[in-house]
Design a protein around this nucleic acid. Structure first.
Length: 647
DNA sequence: GTTTCGGTTCTTTTT
DNA sequence: GAACCGAAAC
């Protein structure tokens, strides 16, 4: 693709133009919602290239795959194919890329495995068992992992965090530290890193190996960071280090939209940027092209009370339209019915389904609506809680690939063997130990030993994998991950799935999708890192979405960040649900939940519906009465139009 | 001793 | 759904 001539003055507003053409050195861009943040970053890339910077010298960091893909696509459209030399992707991707090359300095092999949430969870569980802590009070693996991750990302002492968090409980911080120590050791033994390790080791590499740091400092002439308010300590430090003394660092963010502090993000990184980089140029983008003024008024009003922020008020350019609706409802069912009714009206007015979205605080809050939508035959897509690559059947198929890629991958081995009849965790572990905690299926000796150790009923299932192992090298399957999956499914998993899952058809379709997905990778290793770092296939695979865009989107607010729709419904605006009571128990204030609400409201272009049911049915007929979300009470009533449908 | 099955309970947010 | 627990089955 060829780039096109760009008329910067014409295509950007003054605010954006100033940021895009900012001089070298540190630059802070405060970009409020809907003010063209992505546009600014993309044009900055184009501008730099036009100034003679080689795209290979530009590093562009994002948090989500979606943001990375969008930016790379738009940059390509603007600059042409030469941008493909640019390093653009998520922090985790960049760390992965660098660690594959230099991780050996830290004692890792270049084929290290990446553990996803699920793998990490089972590893922590096995550590707890190994330490015989099952009878004592120890938090669940997920709780431990989030604590480990928080400690890693903020470089705080785990013991400190644990004793603060579990003060006045019987949980002993020393136990947590012991689990953590063992967990760290087990990961090293497995040749594996979890998500936190990718970032932590990426930073270690720069700290401990000055040559390596120097190499990348020289390579990256300009560094750009998106969503800077979401960086944690190690990410911000890593960025500081790679930018180095020349300091060609442009960060874009909005402290109002910082919604990831629970995983260690620290919006003080953005607040303190001017102090850390004295003389940094600062630009503010506040002209909002997205929303009608009534929606912006509401957004400005709701966020105003939050402490510690760069003051900014969204400026509207669109014509006045109508005020957001405050919809008072009896319960969740009425809420679901109201939304469906309203969507019908909106369609009659000419809105397309794909221009409408429903947002909520947490996944389970959408259940009722989902059922109602399906029974009314209204098409919808949901950015689900379960991510594509974390579903059991996908992970089963990937276990085969993982074992070939890293024969020391115990988790993959146990997962694979657990599929065979009469093999569970115990038998699996026994066999694993008898093989010397390594299983290279390409070796005949290993195959024979494994076969002999299996119970008779499992031999059938085994023969499929055996055959793949026999011809793995001959057929060069390492460079054809899709073929491995295909053979595995055809020879064994198809039948297994039919026997195991009620919805086997859908799952087998997913596996075909996985085979399609695999064609873009040259090797098994490459595919596996991508699978681990990619959470959702459907949110970014346009191929899946292109044909049938006529669906309503259901999404959490977190997942909706950075997107926009003509009409937005926000569900369950009641205290305890949004803001979520879980996040309020902590000693934290409700500031972050308020920012989340702000993010939700600023997704809307034309119409915004704030739904607040008065009661919630719990299971077994129980009823809880709800009070409207504090975020609604804080908004001057005149800014909304009240409707009380039905009843 | 292990695996499998059937019932019960619970769902914050993501790379 | 899926994780967990207890009981039945191998």
């Amino acid at each position: 693709m060829q780039g096109r001539r760009i008329d910067y003055e014409k295509e950007l507003n003054e605010e954006q133009l100033a940021a895009v053409q900012a001089p070298d050195g540190p630059v802070l861009v405060i970009a409020a919602a809907g003010t063209g943040k992505t546009r600014t970053l993309v044009y900055r890339v184009a501008w730099l290239v036009e100034q003679g910077i080689d795209p290979r010298g530009i590093l562009l960091l994002t948090f989500t795959n979606r943001a990375a893909n969008e930016m790379l696509d738009r940059a390509r459209a603007l600059v042409g194919d030469s941008v493909s030399g640019m390093w653009g992707g998520t922090f985790h991707h960049m760390a992965n890329r660098i660690l594959r090359r230099h991780g050996t300095s830290l004692g890792y092999r270049s084929d290290f495995t990446i553990l996803d949430q699920d793998d990490a969870r089972s590893l922590v569980k096995s550590c707890i068992n190994e330490l015989k802590l099952t009878d004592k009070h120890v938090p669940k693996p997920d709780v431990l992992l989030s604590l480990f991750g928080f400690a890693s990302g903020t470089e705080k002492s785990l013991e400190r965090l644990a004793s603060d968090r579990f003060e006045f409980t019987p949980i002993a911080p020393e136990d947590i530290v012991r689990v953590h120590k063992l967990y760290q050791k087990r990961k090293v033994d497995l040749g594996a890193m979890d998500f936190d390790d990718l970032l932590a080791n990426g930073l270690r590499l720069f700290r401990e190996f000055p040559d390596c740091l120097a190499h990348y400092r020289e390579r990256f002439v300009h560094t750009l960071v998106d969503e800077y308010q979401d960086t944690n300590t190690i990410q911000a430090t890593w960025v500081d280090m790679v930018a180095g003394p020349k300091g060609n660092l442009l960060v874009v963010g909005d402290d109002f939209q910082s919604i990831y502090s629970w995983r260690g993000a620290n919006f003080k990184n953005i607040l303190s940027f001017p102090e850390r980089y004295p003389g940094a140029a600062m630009y503010k983008l506040v002209t909002n092209y997205r929303s009608v003024p009534e929606i912006l008024n509401l957004a400005n009003a709701c966020i105003a009370g939050n402490p510690e922020q760069f003051q900014k008020t969204l400026k509207a350019v669109r014509e006045p339209h109508q005020r957001p609706w405050l919809v008072e409802l009896r319960d969740g069912q009425e809420q679901a019915r109201f939304i469906i009714e309203k969507i019908r009206n909106l369609r009659a007015e000419g809105y397309r389904m794909s221009e409408i979205t429903v947002l909520y605080r947490s996944h389970f809050q959408a259940l009722e609506l989902q059922m109602e939508l399906s029974s009314q035959r209204m098409p919808f897509v949901i950015t689900s809680g379960m991510r594509f690559f974390e579903q059991a059947h996908i992970k089963d198929a990937c276990a085969v690939l993982r074992l070939f890629s890293n024969p020391g991958d115990e988790l993959a081995f146990l997962r694979l063997l657990g599929l065979w009849p009469r093999v569970g965790p115990k038998t699996g572990l026994k066999i694993w130990a008898s093989l010397g905690r390594r299983c290279d299926l390409r070796k005949q000796a290993t195959r024979e030993k494994l076969k002999a150790a299996l119970p008779k009923v499992a031999q059938d299932a085994w023969s499929t994998v055996e055959q793949i192992g026999e011809v793995y090298d001959r057929d060069e399957l390492h460079s054809d991950p899709g073929e491995v999956v295909h053979r595995f499914v055809a020879g064994f998993y198809r039948v297994h799935a039919m026997e195991t899952f009620e919805n086997a058809d859908r799952r087998l379709e997913d596996l075909e999708e996985l085979v399609n997905f695999s064609t873009r990778f040259a090797t098994v290793d490459e595919m596996l890192s991508e699978v681990a770092l990619q959470s959702n296939l459907d949110t970014e695979g346009e191929a899946v979405d292109a044909g049938d865009t006529e669906r309503i989107r259901l999404s959490t607010v977190h997942q909706a960040k950075g997107l926009e729709w003509s009409v937005v419904f926000i569900l369950w605006l009641a205290d305890g649900l949004f803001p979520s009571s879980r996040s309020l128990n902590e000693d934290e204030s409700d500031a972050e939940e308020r920012r989340l609400f702000y993010v939700a409201t600023t997704r809307a272009k034309d119409e915004l519906y704030l739904c607040t049911p008065r009661m919630r049915r719990t299971r077994e007929g129980g009823i809880t009465f709800l009070s409207p979300s504090r975020f609604i009470s804080e908004i001057p009533g005149a800014m909304m139009k009240r409707i009380t449908p039905l009843s």
